[in-house]
Design a protein around this nucleic acid. Structure first.
Length: 689
DNA sequence: TTTAGGG
DNA sequence: CCCTAAA
C-alpha cells in the first residue's frame, strides 16, 4: 500500500519543536552505527551528542541506554510541563550564556502548544507521538544536564546550535512557524555596519569559546554542519566544515559520517529532483550555495535579546559574511532593519493574528514605534509609517508522499524530510497572499497593495515557494519604494521604505538542510536575522524558536511526489510581473507586424523588441492577439491604457492583410507592402483617417 | 527553439 | 501571461 500524506498548503506550526530531536536511538553515542545506516542525520547527531553529554554528566553509568532514555523522556515531559506552567513568565532574562536549557525547552514547548493545532501533517497518531517523544527526549536530556557542570557548556551549545541552525536556514518555511517581525527602521542603522563587522570578526573567535565547552560542544558544532549538509548542498562551501574541521579535531569523524549521509541524501535528492523536475516542479532546484545554511539545531537563542543575538551573529559570522558577499546589497540594510527592530520587541502579543494560514500578524506603527496593538494600523500612512509583520508560520506547498506500507516510521520521516529538503534545496522565496490571492507585483508598495490596512493584515499570508533560480533579481528593488519582496527569489528585499522581510527565504535556498533547524534561514539571512532580533521580546522568542526548530527527520529514500497542481505553478514559478504594453510598444509592434506578418514573431521580436528582454516573441504574439481583439471590440469595453484608434486600425488592417495572405509566407514581404483591404479602407475612411 | 492556440 | 502541442 501506499501511504499518502498530504501536507497541503497548510501551515505547519509547530514542527519546529520537533525538529530538534533526534531519535533517541541516536542519542547515546551510537553514532557510529548510524553512520552506517545512512541515516545519519543532523538530528541524530545532535541526539547523539546530547546523549554523550548525558552520559558524561550522569556519570558514565552507561549501562542500559534504553531505560535511561525512557527516563529522560519522562523527565523531559515533566520538565516541559513544569515549564509550561512557568511559561508565562517572560523569557526576558538575558541568559545568553546561561540561557537555560529550560528556556529552550520552554520555547519549544511553547511552540508546540501554540502550534499543535496547526500541525497539518496528518500523521498517524503514533508518528506524531513519536515525534513528540523524540523532541521531548532531546530537550529532556538537555534539561537533565542543566544541573551538572556541563550545563553551561550545554547551554552554550544549544545556543550555538541554534544559531548555526539558523544559518542553515532553512526550512523555516517548512515548519515554519516562526514569528517574525519586520519593521523598517529607518534609523539607527548607523551602527549596523559596525556591528556587523564586529560580529564577523568575532565569529572567528567564537569557535574558541565553543571549544571551551569541551567535547560535547564540538560535536554540536559539527552537527550543525551536518545538518546543513543534509540538504543536499553540494557546493557546500561549507563554511562549517572549514571552521569546524580545523577547530575541532573530532569533527572529522562526524564529517565522514556526514559525507556518507550526504551521499545517501543526494541519491534521494536525485529522485526527488527528478520528480520535482517534472512539470510541476520545474523550478526546482539548483542548490545554490549551501554553505550558509549549515547549521541547524534548535534555535533557542533566538530571542534572547540582543546579547544573544549578537552572539549568534558571531557564530554565524562566517556565514553571514559570506552571505553578505553573495547577497550583498540589501543585506546590510536588512540588518539595519533588524537591529532597529530590536526596539520593537515590545509586546509579545504583537503577533497574534494569524490568518488562516496561521501565519502572520501585522502591526502598524509609526516609525518603529511598537504598536502594541495588532491592528493598530496604519492609521496614517505617513511617510514613516511602518508595518510590522509577525509571521508565525508559512504556508508550504502541498506534498504527497508515497511510501510502502512496509516502510518504517523513520523512513517516512526521512521521506518527508527529503521532500521538504528537495523543495528547500531549490531555494525558496516568499509569496504573499492577500485574501488568498497572491500578490505578485513586487514593485507595489504596501500601501498600494493594501497590505497596510488592518483588514488586509488579517488576510495576509506568506507562503514559501520553491525558488526559481531564475532569480528575477528584481531584488534590488532599490528603486522601488515599498516593496514586497514577494517576487524575489532569493533575497528578501528590503525595500527602502518598508521592509518586509521574509524569513528564510533567501537562505533557504542555499541550504536546505532538511533537518533542521529552522532557524537557519532566518539567521542566515541577514534579513532574517534582523527579523529575529526584532523578535527579541519574550513571547516572540518563543515563537521564533518554534520557527526554528524545524523538523529533523532523517531521510530515507522514499518517493515523495509533489503533486499539487494547484500549487504547482504558484509555488514553482512565479508568474512574471505584468507589464502592460505602452503605446509606443504597441506602435512598434504594429509596425513590425505590418512588415513581417503575423507568423514571424521571432523576427518581430528581433526587429522591434530586441532590447526588451521582458518581451518575448510569445509575448508579442499574445499582445498582437489582444490587440486584434481590442480593435474588434467597442472602445468602452477596452481596458487599460487606451491604444490610439489609429494603431488599432492598423492592427486590423495588418491582421486582415496577413490573414488573407495566408500570411506567413515568410520572406516575401517588403516593408510597406502591406495592403489595405477595401474593408479596411472603408473603416479607415469612417474613422476619418 | 518557434509557432500557434487555448487557458 | 501561462502552458503546451507541434513542428
Amino acid at each position: 500500500m501506499v501511504m499518502k500524506k498530504s501536507l497541503g498548503n497548510r501551515t505547519i506550526g509547530f514542527q519546529v519543536p520537533i525538529i530538534p530531536r533526534a531519535p533517541r536511538s541516536a542519542r547515546r553515542g551510537q553514532q557510529k552505527k548510524r553512520a552506517d545506516g545512512n541515516y545519519i542525520c543532523a538530528i541524530e547527531l545532535l541526539a547523539s551528542l546530547a546523549g554523550k553529554l548525558l552520559q558524561e554528566s550522569e556519570s558514565s553509568s552507561a549501562s542500559n541506554n534504553a531505560s535511561e532514555e525512557n527516563d529522560h523522556l519522562a523527565i523531559c515531559k515533566d520538565v516541559i510541563k513544569q515549564e509550561r506552567q512557568d511559561v508565562d513568565k517572560p523569557l526576558k532574562a538575558e541568559c545568553i550564556e546561561q540561557a537555560s536549557c529550560e528556556e529552550s525547552n520552554f520555547a519549544s514547548e511553547h511552540a508546540l502548544e501554540n502550534n499543535e493545532q496547526k500541525f497539518s501533517l496528518r500523521q498517524s497518531q503514533s508518528q506524531h507521538d513519536a515525534l513528540l517523544d523524540s523532541t521531548s527526549t532531546f530537550s529532556g536530556s538537555a534539561k537533565s544536564e542543566k544541573d551538572t557542570n556541563l550545563k553551561p557548556a550545554i547551554c552554550k551549545n544549544e545556543i550555538r546550535y541554534g544559531m548555526s541552525g539558523n544559518s542553515a536556514g532553512a526550512i523555516p518555511g517548512f515548519g515554519p512557524s516562526f514569528g517574525l517581525n519586520v519593521e523598517k527602521p529607518g534609523k539607527g542603522d548607523v551602527d549596523l555596519a559596525n556591528r556587523l563587522k564586529d560580529s564577523v570578526e568575532n565569529s572567528s573567535k567564537y569557535p574558541a569559546v565553543t571549544n571551551i565547552g569541551n567535547q560535547i560542544q564540538k560535536p554540536l558544532c559539527g552537527n550543525p554542519r551536518r545538518v546543513a549538509s543534509f540538504p543536499r548542498c553540494r557546493n557546500n562551501t561549507n563554511i562549517g566544515s572549514r571552521d569546524g574541521d580545523e577547530n575541532f579535531p573530532r569533527f572529522n569523524k562526524f564529517s565522514n559520517k556526514i559525507k556518507a549521509f550526504r551521499h545517501t541524501q543526494r541519491i534521494g535528492d536525485r529522485r526527488i529532483r527528478k520528480l520535482l523536475t517534472s512539470k510541476y516542479w520545474r523550478a526546482a532546484p539548483k542548490l545554490k550555495d549551501c554553505e550558509t545554511s549549515k547549521a541547524d539545531g534548535e534555535m533557542k537563542p533566538f530571542t534572547h535579546k540582543r546579547r544573544t543575538f549578537y552572539k549568534r551573529e558571531r557564530y554565524y559570522g562566517d556565514c553571514l559574511y559570506k552571505r553578505r558577499k553573495l547577497l550583498d546589497r540589501s543585506s546590510i540594510v536588512t540588518f539595519d532593519g533588524v537591529f532597529s527592530g530590536e526596539s520593537n520587541s515590545s509586546s509579545p502579543q504583537k503577533n497574534m493574528n494569524s490568518d488562516r494560514n496561521g501565519s502572520i500578524a501585522m502591526m502598524h506603527g509609526e516609525s518603529g514605534a511598537p504598536s502594541s496593538v495588532f491592528g493598530s494600523q496604519a492609521s496614517s500612512h505617513a511617510k514613516d509609517s511602518h508595518v510590522k509583520f509577525s509571521i508565525k508560520s508559512f504556508r508550504i506547498p502541498e506534498l504527497f508522499i508515497d511510501v510502502p506500507e512496509t516502510a518504517t516510521v523513520g523512513s517516512l520521516k526521512r521521506t518527508v524530510v527529503e521532500a521538504v529538503s528537495a523543495i528547500l534545496g531549490s531555494g525558496l522565496h516568499v509569496g504573499i497572499l492577500l485574501r488568498g490571492k497572491k500578490i505578485r507585483d513586487d514593485n507595489r508598495t504596501l500601501l498600494q497593495t493594501g497590505i497596510s490596512c488592518k483588514e488586509s493584515l488579517d488576510n495576509l499570508g506568506f507562503t514559501l515557494e520553491p525558488n526559481l533560480q531564475t532569480v528575477n533579481s528584481t531584488i534590488a528593488s532599490e528603486d522601488v519604494p515599498l516593496t514586497v519582496p514577494y517576487d524575489m527569489p532569493e533575497l528578501l528585499t528590503s525595500s527602502p521604505e518598508n521592509y518586509i522581510s521574509d524569513p528564510g527565504v533567501s537562505d533557504v535556498p542555499s541550504d536546505p538542510p532538511p533537518l533542521t533547524n529552522s532557524s537557519n534561514d532566518v539567521d542566515t539571512n541577514p534579513e532574517s536575522i534582523s527579523l529575529h532580533s526584532d523578535v527579541s521580546s519574550d513571547i516572540k522568542m518563543s515563537d521564533s524558536r518554534a520557527l526554528v526548530p524545524v523538523p529533523a527527520m532523517p531521510l530515507e529514500p522514499l518517493a515523495i511526489v509533489p503533486v499539487n497542481q494547484k500549487n504547482k505553478r504558484s509555488e514553482l514559478s512565479q508568474r512574471r510581473i505584468r507589464r502592460p504594453f505602452s503605446v509606443s510598444e504597441v506602435e512598434a509592434l504594429v509596425e513590425a507586424v505590418e512588415e513581417l506578418g503575423t507568423g514571424r514573431w521571432r523576427d518581430v521580436k528581433l526587429r522591434a523588441f530586441e532590447n526588451a528582454d521582458h518581451r518575448t516573441y510569445v509575448d508579442l504574439k499574445d499582445k498582437w492577439k489582444t490587440l486584434v481583439h481590442t480593435a474588434s471590440i467597442a472602445p468602452q469595453q477596452r481596458r487599460g491604457e487606451p491604444v490610439p484608434q489609429e494603431l488599432l486600425d492598423r492592427v486590423m488592417a495588418a491582421h486582415a492583410y496577413w490573414s488573407q495572405h495566408q500570411a506567413k509566407q515568410q520572406g516575401k514581404h517588403q516593408p510597406g507592402t502591406l495592403k489595405i483591404t477595401n474593408e479596411q479602407a472603408d473603416r479607415m475612411a469612417i474613422e476619418g483617417m
